[in-house]
């Protein structure tokens, strides 16, 4: 009972940012109790970056190798994880709320019949390490509820990306890296993986998008509206429009947000030149983060926004797209 696991994810040969966040969090929790932080990475091939995970606080990294890991063998993977869990009984297992992390977390909790606390915000551990208290949002994030985990039992806890933050360890020690070829009994093959549909970011539906960039009449015309689209694709989000923008055919009707359009709750909603009539806001006011860019600082949308920007879209948007692309490139190289 002296390990904290992090179920790691790899995307495009990179360790996902959320996995680094989880490692940092695990490191902080483990620090005072001399617990071990173990990164568990189910993947097809080990990636280079794994070697550097010590920088983020991992004492040990276990690579579980199998073709199609993790998504193509959900049951097989959980069986392997469970076996490992039975051997090492970690005090807690951290995972992400992303589709892959969430699936691993739930399947492991099911297989091991241990509790799962999803979408957590804070973990507090008593000084002797026996009591774990987890706080998570309930009632659509309007209330925070605290749960106490059972003692002497493993517990799975998931976090959303962007909540915890990444912190490198001051004096890092390289992590011990072991690789296992994963194997599991035949009865864990009940689901057959067929294929993955990759969505084209340009046709990504507003219902599916975690990021929506929407334009309204304030864009002033199709040309500026296309800049809004540019921003949406740069952020990997979907383009949307207010009713007048759809009426003007700057954007397709099925991307209309509002009372008579679609209701969405993305993590980020960027409103470009949208005044914020109730017809529109009724469809997006529950978005987690709202950014409004508008010439008119008194627009009702500004009242709703977490970040209020006053300015000319035609001038700001090209700069913004360049800036984001620049930052993305910088991030990829570090």
């Amino acid at each position: 009972m002296s390990e904290i696991w992090v179920l790691g994810e790899i995307e495009k040969d990179q360790v996902k940012e959320v996995s680094l966040e989880l490692l940092s969090e695990a490191r902080e929790l483990a620090e005072k109790r001399s617990w071990q932080v173990v990164g568990i990475f189910p993947c097809e091939n080990p990636v280079e970056k794994i070697e550097t995970l010590g920088d983020y606080g991992a004492n040990e990294v276990v690579c579980l190798l199998h073709e199609g890991f993790p998504h193509a063998q959900p049951e097989g993977l959980s069986s392997v994880l469970f076996e490992l869990l039975a051997q090492r009984s970690p005090r807690m297992i951290l995972s992400s709320t992303a589709s892959a992390g969430r699936d691993m977390a739930v399947r492991l909790a099911v297989k091991a019949r241990i509790p799962l606390i999803s979408d957590a915000r804070i973990i507090q551990i008593s000084r002797d390490g026996s009591k774990i208290e987890v706080t998570k949002p309930t009632y659509e994030k309007k209330v925070f509820t605290r749960f106490e985990c059972p003692e002497q039992k493993s517990v799975v806890i998931t976090f959303q990306q962007g909540i915890l933050g990444v912190e490198k360890v001051r004096n890092p020690v390289p992590a011990r890296i072991t690789t296992h070829r994963a194997e599991w009994p035949e009865n864990c093959n009940r689901l057959k993986y067929i294929e993955r549909f990759k969505a084209d970011p340009r046709t990504l539906g507003v219902e599916d998008a975690e990021i929506i960039v929407a334009g309204g009449l304030g864009t002033g015309g199709k040309r500026t509206f296309d800049l809004v689209g540019e921003l949406a694709w740069t952020l990997g989000g979907a383009l949307a429009g207010s009713r007048p923008a759809c009426d003007a055919q700057w954007v397709e009707k099925n991307r209309q947000i509002g009372a008579s359009g679609k209701s969405v709750k993305p993590r980020l909603y960027v409103a470009c030149g949208i005044s914020g009539a109730i017809h529109h806001t009724i469809g997006m006011r529950e978005s987690e983060v709202i950014v409004s860019i508008n010439k008119d600082a008194n627009a009702s949308m500004t009242k709703l926004a977490d970040l209020k920007v006053k300015g000319d879209l035609q001038e700001i948007l090209p700069h913004l797209v360049d800036e984001i692309n620049k930052r993305k490139a910088e991030k990829a190289t570090t």
Partner: peptide, 10 residues
């Protein structure tokens, strides 16, 4: 009022 106002802007 609301319908006409939106139409004017559009």
């Amino acid at each position: 009022l609301i319908n006409l106002e939106e139409a004017i802007k559009a």
